[in-house]
Amino acid sequence: MIMRFRKIPFWSWLWFGLGVVYFLVPLLATLEFSLSMERDKIGLLAYERAFEDKNFIETFTYSNLLALATILASIVLMVPTAYWIRLRLPEARRITEFITLLPFVVPAIILVFGLIRIYSSPLSVPFTEIEIFRPLTNTKIGTNILIVAGYMVLAMPYMYRSVDTGMRTVDVRTLTEAAQSLGANWFTIIVRVILPNIRAALLSGALLTFAIVVGEVILASFLGVDAFGPYLFLLGQHRAYEPAALTFVTFLLTWAAMGLIQLFTGGQGQAAGAH
């Protein structure tokens, strides 16, 4: 090997420094702004005001519930599917991967456009007057189903990839055969054998989904749901300091979610997008 006399990598430090500045300055500016609600005094008043607001508590709780519902429903849908494809139906792999990538091609604004056009009118059998069901957006429960389904679509690329990566690292076939020889049925196999073995992957998919759903604003505002995203947007229209405080809190939440993913998956950062 050649001896190389490395100087201090000046350019690397420069780029890195610039990157740190770009990353941190907006956050520090937001923090600084959120702490200066009272004139000439650094204090947490903006945070107190923001957290006291009844609407904040309601919308934030609601968004967390939506995230939870999305995560659970995604797991129920994706784990058996990925499992079955791995075990019995490898020929469905390509088409499934293709479908799970489609949400990248159909951005949230287009997705909600289509969802509204389909589900705000009664769904009938094509070319007939026979109604299959009434418009989902007419009822509260229907709207909730619709938005969770929409979030599941947005989270699908990440959820499927997480689950599939998790199953790649465990020997699904052997585990299944072992469980079957001990008399387990399919439900037991998936819940008690497969799920615990891919829990790290599931957790990272779940946290990413959480990060996408909690601040989501497009589906929520177009479907008229009182979630945290639209609330924050409206708050920004007529308040100055409270939105900055909540922005900083949102950032900390995203940070926590990503940090936990890092912890559980050992360094494979992932990128999402509900921009």
């Binding site: 937001t30 996408i212 950032f251």
Partner: peptide, 23 residues
């Protein structure tokens, strides 16, 4: 940097806009 990139690439939408207004 990788962790921070994971956070920042997910930090978008309304909060991002507000952060830049404050900046």
């Amino acid at each position: 940097l990788i962790t921070f990139s994971g956070v920042a690439s997910n930090f978008a939408g309304v909060p991002l806009a507000f952060a830049f207004v404050a900046t």
